[in-house]
């Protein structure tokens, strides 16, 4: 029971990382109709720069700030140079061009940081444990990640639904020409939106870095899981992204923790381990297939694009 709660919290923490990624992707897709594979590269840039800044300054907060800023700047530069030429292209062109960007960024980090993975430490002031329930200690840092993620998503929701900027963003999504006629600089707006999505990816990258090997290609593993989140939740829906991210985070974590043991109940230990491990790494994809079989548009999705 104690272990289960811990695993559920781990799943939530993983879900929060996915949610930060999924919100950025969904925002960019919802407004600019762009599918950006290089979103994972921004996650990676955040993790690398965050880990490096922490190593130099010894301050986790400075590392966090540097990682987020680096991802945002990289994102905006990417948008201004390349991405904005892709808004009116079909999805195939967008996929191929951003695939090219992934190759570039993965190699770039190898040139700058070498082939050895970096690791990032959790800050000393968050290295303790919090007793979440009597008798259940849980690492403070993981709890902080959950809290920050939840806060950022709440902020995002308020920003989009309740403010003038959010209104412009939503208007930009539905009618570019009209909003341009009102004197809003659409190009700048799009660059900022893209930069904001990059911020979220960078934040996710820094916060996940202590649990991952910071290495070339790390962005794509998370990107593909983010796609699964979006497919399950329904594209363009913030509620769907939340539901999908938590579902994927928890199912994946619990699957890895318990499926091998579960199979040990009726299979010999050797094959139980094999089958359990294989199935636990496939669990979220099976979940995705099941959701799609019942609701092709995802849990909260509307019409397709």
């Amino acid at each position: 029971m104690q272990l289960l709660l811990e695993q559920v919290l781990n799943g939530l923490q993983f879900g929060v990382t996915l949610l930060l990624m999924a919100s950025g992707l969904t925002l960019v897709f919802g407004i600019m109709r762009l599918i950006n594979l290089a979103h994972g590269s921004l996650f990676m840039v955040g993790a690398y720069v965050g880990a490096t800044a922490l190593a130099y300054t010894g301050s986790f907060l400075l590392g966090l700030a540097a990682g987020v800023a680096a991802a945002a700047l990289t994102g905006m530069a990417m948008e201004a140079l390349i991405i904005r030429r892709l808004y009116r292209r079909d999805h195939l062109d967008q996929v191929l061009a951003t695939f090219g960007l992934i190759l570039f960024f993965n190699e770039l980090v190898r040139v700058v940081w070498g082939r050895q993975p970096l690791s990032m430490d959790t800050p000393a002031w968050l290295s303790g444990h919090v007793t979440v329930l009597p008798g259940v200690p849980y690492p403070s840092f993981r709890l902080a990640v959950i809290a920050v993620g939840v806060a950022v998503i709440a902020l995002l929701y308020v920003l989009i639904m309740r403010t003038r900027v959010g209104m412009r963003i939503r208007a930009g999504a539905s009618n570019r020409e009209m909003i341009a006629a009102l004197g809003v600089n659409i190009r700048l707006l799009y660059t900022l939106v893209f930069g904001f999505g990059a911020c979220l990816a960078g934040l996710a990258g820094v916060m996940a870095a202590p649990f991952l090997a910071v290495q070339s290609g790390m962005g794509e593993d998370i990107l593909i899981l983010t796609f699964v989140v979006i497919v399950i939740g329904g594209i363009g829906s913030i509620r769907g992204a939340v539901a999908g991210a938590l579902l994927v985070g928890v199912v994946d974590t619990l699957g890895r923790a318990y499926l091998p043991d579960l199979f040990a109940l009726w299979l010999p230990p050797a094959s139980a381990g094999t089958v359990g491990t294989a199935l636990s790494s496939m669990a979220i994809y099976v979940l995705m297939a099941a959701v799609l079989a019942i609701r092709p548009q995802g849990l909260f999705g509307g019409a397709h694009d």
Partner: peptide
């Protein structure tokens, strides 16, 4: 194939990843 556009792209990618992990 019951979906289209970016959905189709993401789903085919995810199902390939499933076989990879298998």
């Amino acid at each position: 194939l019951r979906t289209s556009g970016v959905y189709f792209i993401m789903i085919t990618l995810a199902f390939a990843q499933m076989v990879y992990y298998l």
